[in-house]
């Protein structure tokens, strides 16, 4: 799929929200390929944005197009090109994985025999051929999630939306699922929301950072890093003596001290700490750092550390 995902002043105010904007004039333009990952705290607006783009929710104002197709005015046209796994989607317990994928494909317009063949293939690709005919209620949480991912794989849609697909999974299952998501994104455009920053870091070509309905930062990890004044992060134990430096030293989220600085200063400080025998680690700033930089103004208000 070529084209772009474009949002212009996209705004959503829920009837019950007393005027509070769940989405506040979001404007963006990103290539409609690879993985776009939306990150943000609870209530940041990720799911609202995904639901609007996936034609499930009407915006209050603004325009959004995917590959030139308007998500409101041309929803019917777009729906044949998208597949969605909503947040908190669950497999129906009285169905098997094969039946789950098969019926979803029939809703997407495939014939029964075509759906059956594609379902078998997709379940094989996620390693569930042996469990294909086991009741969903007997599957583990990770397997149930694989079934949902198999529906998207089988749909072979131009654009797939997955809203927090790995929430609650153990680290091994999560990494396994990443492989399937990468497989989808090789051919198609995948829009993914997540609370796991390492997931966005690992999978995304473009990362959108949302905070209280606004898109406060968007771009590749590299470009988001570049937007920060300091590119390097040094971590020290709480007991370490912090020297005079060109940068900022703040209490780290791990209880130690975090120094954010530039490359030359990071090199100088590293030499200094090596010489004094101080334990430290030095890295380029992570998505974690970038995220906290962008939402820092709000951390106190949200009560987060």
């Amino acid at each position: 799929m070529g084209g772009e995902l474009v949002c212009s002043e996209l705004t959503k105010v829920y009837d019950s929200s007393k005027g509070k904007r769940a989405l506040d004039a979001i404007s963006l333009a990103v290539p409609a390929r690879g993985v776009l990952s939306l990150i943000g705290m609870n209530g940041a607006g990720k799911t609202t944005l995904v639901r609007i783009l996936a034609t499930q929710l009407a915006p209050t104002s603004g325009v959004a197009t995917i590959d030139g197709v308007d998500v409101v005015k041309e929803a019917k046209r777009l729906r044949s090109r998208i597949a969605v796994i909503p947040q908190e989607a669950r497999t129906v317990p009285w169905m098997t994985p094969r039946q789950t994928v098969l019926t979803y494909l029939m809703w997407r317009g495939c014939t029964y025999s075509e759906s059956k063949k594609k379902a078998t293939d997709a379940l094989g690709r996620v390693g569930m051929q042996e469990q294909s005919d086991v009741m969903n209620r007997r599957l583990s949480g990770g397997m149930k999630r694989k079934v949902l991912v198999a529906t998207v794989l089988a749909a072979d849609a131009d654009v797939s939306f997955l809203d927090e697909p790995t929430t609650g999974l153990d680290p091994v299952s999560r990494r396994e699922l990443w492989g399937f998501l990468e497989e989808i994104a090789r051919k198609h455009f995948l829009i993914l929301t997540t609370h796991y920053l390492e997931e966005a870091e690992e999978l995304a070509n473009v990362i959108g950072i949302m905070d209280r309905g606004k898109m406060v930062g968007i771009g590749s990890l590299e470009s988001l890093r570049s937007s920060l004044k300091y590119q390097y992060s040094i971590r020290l134990p709480a007991s370490a003596q912090v020297p005079q430096l060109d940068g900022v030293a703040t209490p780290g989220r791990d209880g130690g001290v975090q120094i954010l600085t530039n490359e030359d200063e990071a090199y100088r400080l590293s030499q200094l700490f090596l010489g004094s025998g101080t334990r430290f680690s030095v890295n380029r700033v992570s998505l974690d750092d970038v995220f906290f930089h962008y939402v820092r103004a709000d951390i106190g208000e949200h009560g987060a550390q």
């Binding site: 034609t55 729906r79 969605v84 317009g109």
Partner: peptide, 17 residues
Amino acid sequence: HLKNDFKLQDMVVASPT
């Protein structure tokens, strides 16, 4: 039940059905 507990309707809304 299918809409609220399994989000099935959301998946169908975003399909050609």
